[in-house]
Every structure is written in C-alpha cells, then in structure tokens.
Amino acid sequence: MHRFTQACWLGLSLLLLTAVSSSAFAQGGGFGGGYGPPLQVVPPPKQFASSDEHYAYLLEQANGGTKHTLASVPRWDGLWVTAGNNHMEAFIDTGNFGGKVREGVLTPAYEKAYKERWRQQMEQRQVDYDRLGECQPPGMPRFLLEPYSHEFINLPDQSYLINDFGPSIRRVLIGREHSNLYGTHSWYGDTIGFWEGDKLVMSTKYLYPADFTRWSPMTSNQFESIEIWQLKKYDDGIERLEVQATFYDRFAFVKPVNVVYAFRHATELQAADYRVNQWECDQTNNTFLDDEGISNFHLPGEEGFNDARGYTHFPELPGQSFDPIYNTTLEPGAN
C-alpha cells in the first residue's frame, strides 16, 4: 500500500509535468502556482476609501503593532521564488488565458487599454511590447509576481524585500510615517509597516505608473497598496509565504482590488548553491521596440548591440573583459 501511494504521487508528478510543460500558459498569471493548497483571497474586514484609511484601521486593530526584537522578529531566511497568485482572476472572467476581460473592474480608459493588450495576447499569443524590454524596473505591483529569485530579510525596525530582477529592493520601515522628499514618485515608492504577531502589514505609496505583467492591466501613478505578509505552514512540510494585497488606484480601478500572491522556498536553487547576483539591464539587454511596435533584438554586429560579455571602455588594458573565464568574441566563425 505504501509503495502504491508513492507510485500514485510520482504518477501525479509526471502527469503534472506533462500537463504544465505542454502549455506554458495553462495557469494564467500563475508564476509558479500549484505549490500547496489553492490560494485564497482574504478580503479586508470592510471597504475603505483609501489605503491610508485601510492602514490606519489595521494599525488600530493591532493596538499599534507588535514590537519585535532581533530575537523575536519572524525569520524568512533563504532563497524564495514565486509560488502563484490569483491576480488574473481579478481581471479575466475565467482567471486564465481562455477568458475575457472582466468589465467594470477597471476604469473605462484602463479597461480599453487592457482590452487591446488582451486582444494581442489572445490573437498572437504575445503582447507586442513589454516596458521591461526598455529596462524599466518591475516596480509595484509587478515585484510581487516576477520570477527570478528573492530574499526577505526582517529586522525589528525594517525589512528588505529583494528580487534579483533588476535587482529590486523594497525597504519596509517599521513604525514610521510615509515620507517623500523627492518631488516625484519612484518604482518602489515608500513603504511603511508594522508587525501584528507573525504578520507584516505594509503600506506602499508614491509609485510610478507600472503594470501587473505585460498581459495584465496597467497601473497609474496613484496606485497604492496594503499588503499583509505571513509565512503559512501546511501539511507535508509545505511552507508558503503568502501576501494578501489590496490595491487602490483611483485612475485605474473602479474599486479596490484584492489579490493574493505567494512565494515558496527555492530549494532547487539553494541545492545548486545559487546566489542572488547584481546585474544591470542596460548592459545585458538588447531589446528594442521596432517600427511596427513589436519588441525585437539588436544582434551582434548591429548598431545598438550591447555586448554583455564584451569589454570596458579600456579594452587595451589587460583584464578588462566581462568574459574573464572564456574570453570569447562574437566574430562569426571565431571558434
């Protein structure tokens, strides 16, 4: 019986492998979904007019929050990768790539813009353009579902949420008030938070216009978020860092949008001794928007090509190659 059960699980694994690898978009917006039990949105206890009001309510309910010490602050050590989300359900009636844009969720202007993106996705299996192709950072809310790898470092007075895409760092200041001295907004804005036991409650404001993904709605420069992060444990040793988020955007959303995101331990990356690394999109990116409005690439030898493994501005000096192990060139037929 024991062997039979193991065989069943292995069979299920193979079935899942076959199913998911044959259809990359089987889980719309899933980004690693399928790890652990289905994600469930936990909406806020009531509707709020703004993220400020929402955050103030949660802070009051938590009696000002838990004052953690270095010894008591929850630890989310190690590498993490995304483990699903349900943001597509908020905007697509079926929640996946077979559906239609939900009407009345987005404001008319944003709904019209999103319908065009969705048309491209459905008809071409691709949206023509992705702003990240211009090396724009993911920003918020895209930070919450970008793949690559993540680290989450909690200290009593601040937390660092790191994604090696970009790389990107969100800094959560515990027990502080919002502040913006820059006279503009930014990709990750300003995030404050408090702990309620093992839950990290966050408020983020002052963000640039961004998007969820290229096949998802755009967001405006009035986008704000309330997030509640918590490490959840399930049967069979499943650990999942879950993020219950409420998004406010008076330009993009008719009413606040509630979404759940998740991360799981990146056991496969840790086993390979992977480390979050620094990389510069400008140096490694060769994407550009062509005359037809479609993303395309500069290739070696073409004007505009960035050689990520080329040389510094001082190639005449020894040791100035960005390919120090193999010292390759991109001259045709060199090997």
Partner: peptide, 24 residues
C-alpha cells in the same frame, strides 16, 4: 515525495517568463 511533486509542478508551471514580449 509529495513535496517533491509540488515543487516539480510549481517549477514547471511557471509560464513563459521574460522581461520582453516574444512577438519577434
């Protein structure tokens, strides 16, 4: 084994990811 099955499923269910479109 059960956890491995979740990890395998989660790993391979990641949609085609990129910082750009694949329309080219």
């Amino acid at each position: 084994i059960k956890r491995l099955s979740w990890v395998l499923a989660a790993t391979l269910s990641i949609p085609a990811l990129a910082h750009h479109s694949f329309a080219m």
